[in-house]
């Protein structure tokens, strides 16, 4: 048996639709080590959900292989299903007329939770996702966030060693999303391996060890989170406002700062500088750049993963890779 929690090799998935084929995944290769949390990024339609569904045995691949803890997702269904928990975002997938507890109970048994200790486990899980007070209300009365939390409880009820989370924070308010992040952080300490898809880069930033970007049905980037941040080529943005003549950067200064944007209007200018590498010396260098100018204000903003992602996405697009499954006639 191999050491990886998830191993994906040459995975492809083509959907037949009217008017041709949609290639959702072309040739995806990636591994998630045991106990590792990997963030999966990509534009809408990049194939993230498709990949998650294949790993969850909900969908068959049209090419390549995928294994969960050494078990093939197309032939070793029982084992894969026993070892994985899955949460697909959305409001469907629950029995509206049943209570939250009844839903959780049923799906827990489907996931292989035995009779012994079931009641306690349900209680603990409901408590954990903050649904204990509403557990005996019909799910049709739940809000979007409550449904999402119930989905989470269902996905984690059998304490699976491998967890697939597809946009788990969709529909959650900031407080709820933060609680979810704490839950996933707890899983890390338990040694659970997680493949996490999210549009909230905060989720990735806080939780993931590694980032995988899907584009064009392939893995466009697969890097440590720390490395990922460097993909943008800068670490902070300094915004300066002043009057008179805006400063001009010389050759040495341009190697440290890049002008992102310069606007002038009625004697006022605003300059945005990208700082390639923020350090103690940066203050001195910045002082040199701004030396001759009349400064009204300075603002420093650290790089956010959003900026990195936009940067990478823009680069991918410039290379003709939209990241969206293309239609072939």
């Amino acid at each position: 048996m191999s050491g990886a929690a998830i191993e994906v090799e040459g995975l492809g998935r083509t959907f037949k639709v009217r008017g041709g084929d949609v290639v959702a995944l072309k040739d995806v290769n990636l591994t998630v080590g045991q106990g590792e949390i990997v963030g999966l990024l990509g534009s809408n339609g990049a194939g993230k959900t498709t990949l998650t569904k294949i790993l969850a045995t909900l969908l068959l691949p049209t090419g390549g292989t995928a294994r969960v803890l050494g078990h093939d997702v197309t032939s070793d269904l029982r084992e894969v299903r026993r070892l994985t928990g899955v949460v697909l975002g959305g409001e469907r997938g629950l029995y509206a007329k049943l209570t939250g507890r009844e839903n959780l109970r049923f799906f827990a048994v489907l996931a292989g939770v035995g009779r012994r200790g079931l009641v306690d486990r349900l209680e603990a899980a409901l408590d954990h996702v903050g649904l204990a007070d509403v557990a005996d209300r019909a799910v049709e009365t739940y809000s979007k966030g409550m449904r999402q939390r119930l989905h989470l409880a269902i996905g984690m009820i059998n304490e699976p060693p491998v967890l697939l989370l597809d946009e788990p924070t969709v529909g959650l308010d900031p407080v709820e999303a933060e609680r979810l992040r704490q839950d996933v952080a707890v899983l890390r300490s338990r040694g659970t391996s997680v493949l996490l898809t999210s549009h909230l880069l905060l989720d990735i930033e806080r939780l993931a060890d590694r980032v995988v970007i899907l584009a064009d049905g392939e893995v466009a980037a697969d890097v440590e989170v720390a490395e990922f941040a460097k993909l943008a080529g800068y670490t902070a943005i300094v915004t300066v406002r002043g009057t008179g003549c805006p400063p001009v950067l010389d050759g040495a200064q341009a190697s440290r700062f890049a002008v992102d944007d310069l606007t002038e209007a009625s004697g006022l200018w605003t300059l945005r500088l990208r700082v390639r590498d923020w350090s103690v010396e940066s203050f001195g260098h910045l002082g040199a750049v701004l030396g001759g100018a009349t400064i009204l204000g300075v603002d420093v903003a650290p790089l956010r993963l959003e900026d990195v992602y936009s940067h990478v996405a823009a680069q991918l697009a410039a290379n003709g890779r939209t990241g969206v499954g293309e239609v072939r006639p």
Binding site: R81, L88, G90, R92, G93, L94, F107, V109, L110
Partner: peptide, 10 residues
Amino acid sequence: GTLARCVCGV
């Protein structure tokens, strides 16, 4: 929308 979970139990 519960069919998927029902057919993918253990």
